[in-house]
Design a protein around this nucleic acid. Structure first.
Lengths: 207, 207
DNA sequence: CCCCATCCTGACCATATGGTCAAAAACAAA
DNA sequence: TTTGTTTTTGACCATATGGTCAGGATGGGG
């Protein structure tokens, strides 16, 4: 068996390094141009490798994309997963908002990659969403609902609350081009957003 | 002069009908697959016309896209434009939220088309954003700021307030695939969202 | 009914793009 | 160094796609 370095096998140092390079380049290109808009040549150039060499490490464009998406899923959901049932409800939620916004600042490419995928109808992620994400979502909405029923935060539909948190925080990464135009001049937009969102959710959730 | 029906000239009935068909088909296809992901063949099929015929009415793929975008800009910004300086601040803003959410329900394709364009860095819209949108944005943030300074609604950064309204309302159209997965079973998601957002912004803006 | 402008199409073209392959190069164990 | 394995590449291929064009169909005013 010569090929298929993708299969579960001990990966050599070179393989680890080049797969990393490729995925990083692919993140850059996919997040900027979307799946269809990205080309293997662009990814190859960005990665500093030849196109056939890219195909040596991955079985095709789609496999690269799926790899990226799956790899990202975990870290993307991590902040939500970390919402502590034993913490102070208001503080937990505000901390979540803060972390999520921080991710828009530090990982805008990842945010846009996801946004692109969902916009297209999540053709390659639906299974993942239906299992991993759905489970986590149900778990956390239940937790928030308990908090609300205990009167520790204001009663609201926890599902829409989470949607609004996702929407407001990811907006700064996904609609960056628009935000930049409208906030021309400002250089600390995200700081302003952090202050605004903190105020907003505190006021909203105060019991 | 035979060609260029695109030029400003009286358009025949057939031209009006077919341009409409094409733009409608293009909206469907572009909003679903993004600019790069859409093909002229798809648009032609959707419009029930042949590809060369499409090219008879528009000088190219890009011209169709730009036409769509420009045409949509107006109607998209209309609700914001209609925020009445003489109305009751809280009611005006809540009405705006309601209208905006209604557009996510009635015109999700338009929403996704814009989202796609902005996600890619607004390559074909930046000029439009910098003029039309920016002017309207500045105008309305100023209005909201006046309302706040008059103590008629709670003081917040009006710019981030508008961002949050856009984000929370458009989320239901743009991230529809995700919302569907997480709200599986519910059939009136948008009604729930309307109630949630109304509560949210009233609470947030109460003086 | 005739005629001209408008409208439409089949056939075709150039290029871009995902992907293949045989063989060369680089590497590593002996 | 030798030898077998992994890595890399230039050349190539099939298909998709945006776009062109010459000529045929259609429609409406006279």
């Amino acid at each position: 068996m010569t090929g298929a370095p993708t299969a579960v096998k001990k990966r050599s140092r070179i393989q680890i390094r080049n797969r990393r390079r490729i995925l990083d380049a692919a993140l850059e290109v996919f997040s900027h141009h979307g799946y269809r808009g990205a080309t293997l040549d662009q990814i190859a150039a960005e990665a500093g490798l030849s196109k056939p060499n890219i195909l040596y490490y991955f079985n095709g464009k789609e496999e690269i994309h799926v790899s990226l998406l799956n790899q990202l899923m975990t870290s993307w959901l991590d902040p939500l997963d970390h919402m502590d049932p034993d913490g102070d409800p208001l503080e937990e939620i505000c901390a979540y908002v803060r972390r999520k916004l921080e991710m828009s600042r530090e990982f805008p490419r990842e945010s846009r990659l996801f946004a692109n995928e969902i916009l297209q109808g999540a053709p390659r992620m639906k299974p993942h969403l239906e299992t991993t994400l759905k489970a986590l979502f149900d778990d956390k909405t239940a937790l928030i609902r308990r908090w609300m029923e205990a009167g520790r935060i204001a009663p609201l539909d926890p599902r829409h609350l989470i949607f609004s948190i996702w929407a407001t925080t990811q907006h700064y990464a996904d609609f960056d081009a628009q935000v930049r135009v409208l906030m021309a001049g400002e250089d600390d937009v995200l700081d302003g957003a952090a202050a605004y969102l903190d105020t907003m959710y505190r006021k909203l959730l105060a019991p």
